[in-house]
Design a protein around this nucleic acid. Structure first.
Length: 640
RNA sequence: GCUGGCGUAGCUCAACCGGUAGAGCAGCUGACUUGUAAUCAGCAGGUUGGGGGUUCAAGUCCUCUCGCCAGCUCCA
């Protein structure tokens, strides 16, 4: 059954204009304007499909939603495109062996094993061959073969990867294959009816990928591509990608002078003055809310004795990611996590059951030796500050405490208007503690989420080595998700460190410990924020909040007076005194995404006014300086 | 770490098949005193990421190394 793909264009698109409130997400707009579609999108989102759903509406960007009724049809189309690509590759490079080639969120890929090393030029040649296959309009034929027949078929073709896959399927299972002309693939489908249906496609990139995702296996060559039902949709998607690249935090970080990465310290970011303003502002918000939620702040050392890490189990389970050093010939380690430090604070004196829960938070700088190839701007670094906290509590307090943590997370994320999804990660292979304890801990997390009403998906085997966890994932500009917040229930550390509290009965008891981080890492979170706001930070966290632009040097003195007045109110303000035309100064302030510009000419100076220009709205005209000051102070306080 | 690609001035990019590095923006200096997204002129800026090699000659070819990018693996 053929279905049409739903496409909606918002914003400045000549053929479809729609008025929306500022700051709404696409989802919110759709919920208002198209309630039926909204339901379909929610369904698509629950399955992890669709793109750009959490994106904010920018003033002049074309934003589209590729989802809805026909998500399945698009999936089939891309899956077929992947087969067409494989067929094209085999025509051009007959010795190529096929591994797997699925449709994915925004396109498709195929993993190939070939003596030939594919180059970007090959991609063009493959695209040309694909176009021929589309032109030939070859029907796709679905067949179900008995297992032995299928094995015989693929062995005959020398398709070793397909044979390996079949051999792992249940013995009595019939095998589903698809044929298009002389091309045969092991495949469950579904597909579109013929290659002619794939009207718009593009091969995007080459990459390596381990066979079956295991680094012990051979590395295959992966070709990524995408396909759409119509050329216009493909073009719109490619345009979207270009726009996303423009908000890459690495690019904006340099342009807005927020941070840098230097060859002298790979993975160790340098925060510049403007980046630090943002960092300090979000830390300030963090402190306010944590104190309101009953946390106490601590700070623990970065270097601690190796014995501590042996006791905590990090030596055994995490050594490969740790940096070591020596002090007076004794072995020490740089902390990769904050828990042991916090535990030492807890253990510094006795605790009564009356004190619990004890919530200790810490902006903890940790170092981890990440693989060089994994480093990525601020998102993946080797030194980062976790906004950590450890909560020690009675076993009976677990559920309520976790609910409270979720509430705090929700509150903070909503200040930034960030969309997130939660995942529950269970016991990994390399884990401490026995199954029963893990079971209890995992259930506690599960119940807390369900009672709070937090939707989540399960990640089997993805927990930390000391306990299960709930992860909060945020999206970057390209829709890649990054784990930020985490709540980990730790039922091993209290044991390892013999943590106790004195109960009502006067006896020692074992507290339960939660390890949690909300931003996850300050670095990663700032990276996410840069992309989320596309560098146009809200007033309250903008590095420079107001820039005063005198038109000539006759206004310099007045400009300085205004600056002093704003500075006194703790507003971040600069004056552009350079001898340049006003258009030039405005342009520069605009490029720097400064929220407010005050244009000062003779007129304003004589009347004690300022001509206010807003980053997004443009010229707002002249107003009394006093009024402006009141308004901006309110806006900052509201964190709007 | 693995596979592939890339590395030229602070930034964005040029330099045919090896012939000895060039532009715009930014910076500095000067002129202009300017009304809502780039005023004009001049100056300065690079051992082409680093080491080694091939060659009469290397930004260009080979090699080692460092870093970056995409993906894999891993993870906040």
């Amino acid at each position: 059954m053929e279905k049409e793909m739903i496409k909606i264009s918002f914003a400045v698109n000549p053929d479809y204009k729609i008025e929306v409130e500022k700051g709404l997400t696409i989802l919110e707009i759709v919920a208002q304007k198209a309630p039926k579609l909204y339901k379909l999108i929610l369904a698509a989102k629950a399955n992890g499909k669709g793109i750009g759903l959490g994106d904010r509406v920018e003033e002049d960007s074309l934003i589209q939603i590729f989802t809805g009724a026909d998500e399945e049809g698009l999936h089939a189309l891309r899956h077929t495109a992947s087969h067409i690509m494989a067929q094209a590759v085999q025509r051009l490079f007959p010795d190529t062996k096929l591994a797997i080639g699925p449709a994915i969120a925004n396109g498709f890929y195929y993993d190939l094993d070939s003596a030939h090393v594919f180059t970007p030029d090959d991609l063009t040649a493959i695209e040309t061959e694909m176009a021929k296959i589309v032109e030939e309009d070859i029907p796709l034929v679905h067949e179900i073969l008995p297992r032995d027949k299928a094995l015989e078929l693929f062995s005959g073709l020398g398709a070793i990867y397909k044979v390996e896959l079949i051999n792992e399927l249940p013995e009595d299972m019939p095998i589903s294959i698809y044929r298009q002309g002389d091309f045969i693939d092991l495949c469950a489908g579904p597909h579109v009816s013929s290659t002619g249906k794939v009207k718009a496609f593009k091969l995007q990139s080459l990459a390596g990928a381990y066979w079956r995702g295991d680094e012990k296996n051979k590395m295959l060559q992966r070709i990524y591509g995408t396909a759409f039902a119509k050329k216009t949709e493909l073009d719109a998607y490619l345009k979207l990608l270009e726009e996303a690249a423009a908000r890459d935090h690495r690019k904006l970080g340099r342009e807005l002078d927020l941070f840098s990465l230097q060859d002298e310290g790979p993975g160790f970011p340098f925060f510049h003055p403007h980046g630090m303003v943002i960092r300090n502002e979000i830390e300030k918000l963090w402190r306010e809310l944590h104190f309101a939620f009953g946390y106490d702040e601590i700070k623990t050392p970065v270097i601690l004795s190796r014995d501590l890490w042996i006791q905590s189990g990090h030596w055994e389970h995490y050594r490969n990611n740790m940096y070591f050093t020596e002090i007076d010939e004794a072995p020490y380690a740089i902390k990769p996590m904050n828990c042991p430090g916090c535990i030492l604070v807890y253990r510094a004196h006795h605790h009564s059951y009356r004190e619990l829960p004890i919530r200790m938070c810490e902006m903890g700088l940790v170092h981890r030796h990440e693989l060089s190839g994994a480093l990525h701007g601020l998102m993946r670094v080797r030194a980062f500050t976790q906004d950590d906290a450890h909560i020690f509590m009675l076993p009976g307090q677990i559920k309520d405490e976790i609910k409270k943590v979720i509430e705090l997370f929700d509150k903070v994320y909503s200040v930034y208007g960030l969309k997130y999804h939660a995942e529950l990660s269970t016991k990994p292979e390399k884990a401490m503690g026995d199954d029963a304890i893990w079971e209890v801990a995992t259930e506690a997390l599960r119940e807390a989420m369900e009672e709070y009403g937090l939707k989540y998906k399960v990640n089997p085997g993805d927990g930390a080595f000391y306990g299960p966890k709930i992860d909060f994932h945020l999206e970057d500009s390209l829709g890649r998700t990054w784990q930020c917040g985490t709540i980990q229930l730790d039922m091993q550390m209290p044991e390892k460190f013999d943590l106790t509290y004195i109960g009502e009965d006067g006896q020692k008891h074992r507290p339960v410990m939660i390890h949690r981080a909300l931003y996850g890492s300050m670095e990663r979170f700032i990276g996410i924020l840069i992309e989320h706001y596309a560098g146009a930070f809200p007033l309250w966290m903008a590095p420079v909040q107001v820039k005063i632009l005198p038109i000539t040097d006759r206004q310099t003195e007045y400009a300085q007076k205004l600056k002093e007045a704003l500075f006194k109110e703790k507003i971040r303000v600069t004056v552009d005194e350079r001898n340049e035309k006003i258009g030039y100064k405005i342009r520069e302030a605009q490029v720097q995404k400064i929220p407010y510009m005050l244009v000062i000419g003779d007129k304003e100076m004589e009347e004690g006014k300022v001509a206010v220009r807003k980053r997004k709205e443009g010229d707002l005209g002249a107003q009394d300086f006093a009024n402006f000051l009141t308004a901006i102070k309110n806006e900052i306080a509201e964190k709007a």
